[in-house]
Nucleic acid binder design. Structure first.
Lengths: 219, 219
DNA sequence: GGTAATCTGTGACTTTGTCACCAAGTTATT
DNA sequence: AATAACTTGGTGACAAAGTCACAGATTACC
């Protein structure tokens, strides 16, 4: 691992700051670019644990009736809790992964990964907090689906994915529908209504003029 | 810990079979009965990790708009992944727990719990598999909500909670609605329809004559 | 036996999801 | 540049599920 690579990793994973120069030079640690659609299948015994530096990876499972069930997606600065648990629990990886956007990944041989967790408190906390965070995110999602209207869920998504200084978001209705687990038509209709009320404007592949402060936050 | 108590624990947690007699006698390990409605609040630093021998415990969090969001429920033979992650990650417990049915619990001081995880492979695997299992259960739930009809979800619930030799289930429409995250009226109506089709019979607080083999399994 | 609490049934209405299909815009192909 | 193929978004009609309001039925408990 070269110095600039290490700096890049630390920018995304500050919890690795405690690592000594010797630890960074251990055999097998590397940064690689993984092309879109690269896939890891369920049941493989992993040699490396990936830490995502950039890109987008979907983790999924096949359900009893053959559909793919998305467990979650990983982006910059995230690790896969299921991989961590398979390494720490010494069991096979119980899911599949598919790279959705070309991704930059830090590969850490499982033995070294395990050693880092044992030795370095910051990294250990990061890993176990990832577990907890993922469980809580998923619970919130279940709750949102059950109790919040589509309108509110769209609003919250827009608020979360824009900044005050940038009031537009590049996303198609279809993508947004997948994100929120609903149908494209529902998104189109709801956005149209919101446009009529002057809360935002819709354009092909883009939502602009988002009035963050006027979007309904709760209820 | 007495011999009969240890046997009771091992019946529920076979992964603890490797423990030596000395380990069972360590200070602080105990089996206690916890009454219904006993609650642990968010943010407490836990001294003991509970392993559930019997009963029902709900783990929940307060959402941003003040509602209680149920993360999951624990029954006999289960541990709380969030507690495990807070102990292993040395952070505070990020959720609340409420005992719903009087429960029998094995309390393990956190230090000992941690030592068990380090020393005993079976227990370590059990803990990390609990994480993985919980994540997968929650994903399946999200998927079911999104893609399966109420009718199918009721059918699957009935199949899962009855045995071939017992074709009835004691549950109110309200409880079933909460389990499936829907409204009581929807359950009542759907059960009524299913009764008309001869798939089951409804009685106050009970569903009887469940024709397991005729219930739709998928779709 | 009377009263309260719990459980279930129903109609009317709203929201969300599904299906089928069209129109406009974009990209690829020749 | 003309055409085809694909993406994206729009719409109407209908189905499924959730919400609200209220009424009966059954059970529990003084």
């Amino acid at each position: 691992m070269q110095k600039d690579q290490i700096a890049e990793v630390l920018a995304r994973f500050p919890s690795l700051a405690e690592l000594t120069p010797e630890e960074w030079q251990e055999e097998g640690i590397s940064v690689t670019t993984v092309p879109a659609n690269f896939t890891i299948d369920e049941g493989e015994f992993l040699e490396n644990a990936p830490l995502i530096l950039d890109g987008l990876v979907r983790i999924f499972k096949l359900s009893s009736d053959g559909r793919e069930v998305t467990l979650y997606r990983l982006t910059a600065g995230e690790c896969c809790p299921l991989i961590a648990s398979s390494i720490l629990g010494e069991t096979v990886y119980e899911a599949s992964a598919c790279v959705e956007k070309p991704s930059l990944v830090l590969n850490v041989p499982t033995k070294i990964y395990k050693k880092w967790i044992e030795k370095h408190q910051d990294f250990r906390q990061y890993i176990f907090q990832s577990f907890a965070r993922r469980l809580i995110i998923m619970s919130n999602l279940i709750d949102d689906i059950n109790f919040k209207s589509i309108r509110v869920r769209i609003s919250e998504y827009l608020i979360e994915h824009t900044r005050a200084e940038n009031d537009s978001l590049a996303i198609t209705h279809d993508q947004l529908a997948i994100e929120l687990g609903t149908a494209r038509e529902v998104i189109s209709r709801t956005l149209k209504k919101m446009e009529k009320e002057g809360l935002l404007r819709v354009a092909r592949g883009q939502i602009t003029d988002i009035q963050r402060s006027r979007l309904p936050a709760v209820q």
